[in-house]
């Protein structure tokens, strides 16, 4: 099982701060695609991903028990 955390507007779009699903064995890119479809998230592909609070790229594979966080980059200033 994995815990998935959503930051900023993603949290509002999903309706929860975190969800639990089993995505072990899948890449970050695959999980983004899956969640974008499930929750109709427009800009999840450009979000940064952390696995266990460490930066992960789209090719990284998620393991059982990993905590995955999606953080959307912002440009305001």
């Amino acid at each position: 099982m994995n815990k998935i955390l959503f930051f900023a507007h993603l949290k509002d779009e999903v309706g929860e701060e975190n969800i639990r699903i089993d995505v072990a064995g899948r890449t970050v890119a695959e999980v983004k695609e899956l969640l974008a479809a499930e929750y109709n998230l427009q800009k999840l592909d450009s979000a940064m991903t952390a696995i266990n609070e460490e930066f992960a790229s789209n090719e990284n594979v998620i393991e059982a028990g990993d905590e995955v966080a999606f953080i959307p980059p912002v440009s305001g200033g």
């Binding site: 900023a8 952390a50 460490e54 966080a69």
Partner: peptide
């Protein structure tokens, strides 16, 4: 670390970046 926070939704995150160098 890469720090991000949401002061209204009460979220804080500190992401380690040692694997991020491409």
């Amino acid at each position: 670390s890469f720090v991000s926070f949401d002061l209204w939704r009460n979220q804080y995150s500190s992401m380690k970046m040692s694997r991020a160098k491409d």
